[in-house]
Amino acid sequence: MKKAIYLLMIFTVTLFTSCEKDEIGGTATEALAGEWQLTVDAVDDAGNVVINDPFGLGVTLGITYNTNENVADKMYVSDLGNFWDYTVVVNCDCNALTFSTNGEAQNEAYDCKVNIENGKILLGAATTPSGMPADSLVYYVSFSDDDNPAAYGFAKYKVSGYRRTGFVSDEQ
């Protein structure tokens, strides 16, 4: 009986010590990926606000996320249909925390061209409604099927906000 107990103990110890845990890594664009609480303003060529919240949307949700290729120099930017309905692949630099389309890119949400420029993430630069620090995101966007800039005297839209915290007090 003692022999069976010893064999069982040796088997159990061997079983637990031979198990290896695989480290689960992040994606190639992990530093830039996230959910964002965003506002949209109409701006002139210099980035000066011409119209605050031109569509009366208030704060909307947007996301930045990895492509299927999982490369460090490309990611998706999407407004989840909350503003203009765009999902576009941008070029990015994970070390500099910047991104842009470098000209017009195809919108994957519907057929139009999207230009995203001067996109950047500033670590800890935003203050959430609850008063806590969060990462800040800002970029400028324009659309090939948008007649509003010519009609209302602005050049593009400034999209800016903070990384979503998940706290109820920071949701707007």
Rank of each mutant, 00 (worst) to 15 (best):
C92W: 02
C92L: 03
L123W: 02
N91T: 10
N148E: 14
S142N: 11
S130A: 15
G153M: 09
T101C: 03
V77N: 02
Y110Q: 04
Y140M: 03
E104M: 05
N66S: 08
G56Q: 09
G103L: 08
E108Q: 15
P133R: 12
N95C: 01
D93E: 07
M75T: 01
S130P: 11
D111L: 05
T127R: 13
F143N: 03
V71A: 01
A126E: 14
F154C: 04
Y110M: 06
E104S: 06
T128Q: 13
T67R: 11
T127N: 09
N70V: 06
V49W: 02
D53M: 12
P133C: 11
N115T: 04
L61P: 00
T128W: 09
D85Y: 15
V114K: 04
F167Y: 12
C112V: 01
Y152P: 00
P149I: 04
L57T: 06
C92V: 04
T165D: 09
E69M: 06
V71C: 01
Y140H: 09
V90F: 04
T128D: 13
A150G: 00
N102K: 11
Y162E: 10
D135Q: 07
D73E: 03
I51E: 07
F167A: 14
N118L: 09
E69F: 01
R164S: 13
E104L: 02
N68G: 11
N107Y: 08
Y140K: 05
E104A: 05
M75N: 01
Y86K: 03
A134Y: 09
T165Y: 05
Y162L: 07
D73R: 02
V138S: 15
C92Q: 03
V90A: 02
T127D: 07
F167N: 13
V89P: 05
P133S: 13
A134N: 09
M132E: 15
A151V: 08
L80D: 00
R163L: 12
P54Y: 11
I121S: 08
P54A: 12
N66F: 00
Y139H: 10
E69W: 02
P149V: 04
L61E: 06
V89M: 12
D147Q: 10
D79H: 07
V89T: 15
A125R: 13
A105T: 08
G81K: 12
I121R: 10
N52G: 00
A155V: 00
N66D: 14
L61K: 06
Q106N: 15
I121V: 15
L97S: 10
T87A: 14
G161K: 12
V90Q: 01
A155Q: 03
G58V: 07
P149A: 07
Y162I: 07
L57I: 05
D146Y: 08
F167K: 13
S136P: 00
T67C: 11
F167D: 11
K74V: 04
S142G: 00
T101L: 05
N52A: 11
D145P: 00
T64L: 14
G81F: 13
F167I: 09
G119H: 05
T67Y: 07
G161V: 10
V89L: 10
Y76Q: 06
T87S: 15
A126T: 09
G161Y: 07
F55A: 14
G124Q: 12
A125W: 06
K113A: 03
V71I: 13
F154N: 01
I63E: 14
